[in-house]
Computed example of a mutant assay.
Amino acid sequence: MTLEPFQIKIGQDRLDLLGERLRSAVWADEAAGGEGWGYGVPGGYLRDLVRYWRDEYDWQDHEAAMNRWPHVRGEIDGVTVHALYERGSGPAPLPLVLSHGWPWTFWDFAKVIEPLAHPERFGGDPDDAFDVVVPSLPGSVFSAPSPSGVGWRRTAGLWVNLMAELGYERFGAHGGDSGAFVTAQLAHEFADRLIGAHLTYPALLGADTASLRREDFAPDEVGYFDARRSPQANLTHFLTHTLEPQTLAWAMQDSPVGLAAWMVQRRQAWSDCDGEVERRFSRDELITSFALYWLTGTVGGSLRFYADSFRLPWTASHDRQPALEAPTGIAVFPRELTHVPRALAEQHANLVHWTRMPGGGHFAPAEEPGLLVDDLRAFFRPLRELDRAR
């Protein structure tokens, strides 16, 4: 392992190339009256977003904000891994690894890093502090390039070794989207290393969630089933990324406008924004996520993570039950892509914490950072005491 301090620095030549691509974009035709989102991202919105990216957005400002935090980068088990790493204050910070998904990046956790690491700065209890570790998924952004075969199963093992390299034999874990599957695999395969696993996406390994029916939900849960998103909201990107990631990568890495369209569609469809994506994400936040992938040349790696994760069915590492052995907490955000009955979660996980949130969607740390911080603190408080008593 070769973890070393790392500073983000995108070269001016790369930024100049991006500017050229944005200025010379070739726009597709559009059906008359197609300004709504029914056919995908409308041209009027996308043109204005790209204009802002080209003329007003300042990458250096956001690069400086990222570099406010310490980072490490190095090779672990043959895979390049980057992580933001902020040591917490307080008497005994609990080590916590936060795993993102797609089209997230590590920077989707920007609003929760300081409150988690330094609660006293926000009127909180220093005893709730965490040592916060936010890696980039293999193949994404600064964790690139990545060899084939590195999906969420193998990533769980990488995170164990990453945390050990940072000095932690036991730690907590949280994740959403693909990061929820990484966290669930940690709770399954490496339960002895985990203080607790906290999820915002119900990644119940081995559970049949595809055939859930309305009657499977308790009376006070059926609203989640009734409000579920159509399968097409999930399948468009999932099938393409899993079956043809490289084909799509050529187009999106070549065109930052195409990349912006593909990614902003997911932000608009999957967040709790009532169809207005900028109710949840500022333009700068949206563009920074696009820029991180395009400037680092890692669009392909981020898409291949799907293929390396989901082409083969999950297989258990052991036959002990429940599959998620480590103490597990699930935060239920109402506009998440998938919901499960609490009874199913209790069957497949060592469920000790279940919170139904008043708002928020698929991008919990960016949409509702305060709710997520509060829930992480509440989930880990009793687990800290149990871990000290080991």
Rank of each mutant, 00 (worst) to 15 (best):
Q12M: 08
Q12N: 12
L15F: 15
D16H: 14
L22K: 11
S24I: 05
A28R: 14
D29F: 07
D29P: 08
A31N: 05
A32G: 09
G34W: 05
G34F: 08
W37Q: 04
G38A: 14
Y39D: 11
P42D: 12
P42R: 09
G43C: 05
L46H: 01
R47T: 05
D48Q: 12
D48N: 02
V50F: 01
R51H: 06
R51G: 02
Y52P: 00
R54F: 12
R54K: 14
Y57L: 10
Q60Y: 15
M66L: 08
R68W: 12
W69K: 03
W69G: 02
H71W: 15
R73A: 09
R73D: 14
E75C: 10
D77Q: 11
D77T: 06
G78F: 12
G78P: 14
V79I: 14
T80P: 01
T80L: 06
A83I: 10
A83E: 02
E86L: 14
G88Y: 04
P91C: 10
L94W: 00
L94H: 02
V97I: 13
V97K: 01
S99G: 08
S99E: 04
S99K: 01
H100T: 00
G101V: 10
G101H: 02
W102T: 00
T105S: 07
F106N: 01
